[in-house]
Amino acid sequence: MTWSEVWALLIPLIFFLIYKQKDNTTRPIIYYIFIGLILNLLATLVIVFFFKLPEHLRNNTIFYNLHSIARVSFFSWYIITIRKYYRPQLYKILLAAYFVFLAFNFIFNDSITVYNNDLATAETITLLVLCIFFFLRSIQDDSEVNWLKHPAFLFCAGIFLYESVSFFINLFFYKMAEKNLSFGSLMLDIQNLIFLILCLMISMGLYSNRTKNE
């Protein structure tokens, strides 16, 4: 599934190109698709041309780390944008904590070119909490909005599923790889599969947010 990280993101990109969006609320998701696609493409190209590249360029971890930061930034931006009427202070505090951790981690612990369990775990915790906030708010919401038909529900359900499955994989990835390489590889495939589901749900969200005369 080497290329799956790339072509999976092409699905929502195609949906975006085909279906004109009825408003700008999905803009953060669109940015994420473009940036995620470029980062995953670069990461995959490093693997594909590994032996042809000079030694100092044989590391694609920086792209995965940047992708992780992009995922948190753009999805949280999106959630804050659509829930702006509901006092987003808690979201902002959580995000601030995430970015403080990020700065602290890269300055005092590891370089951005090194795979970091803590970074992935911080991403998962941040996005899981944001999604749970979103779902709780949508349960409390008394407005006329039908959240099941809202694109945010599909985006959040997708990211919620992805982060839930990724949480334990990211947390124990090194230990898994050390003890049982084939099991570690299987888990990475499962993570890729869940990433594909996330991309499909993003595509469905973009489809539901299309202008209706399309």
Partner: peptide
């Protein structure tokens, strides 16, 4: 570890 991961997921 594998058991923890599977149960956790």
């Amino acid at each position: 570890v594998s058991t923890i991961v599977i149960v956790g997921i």
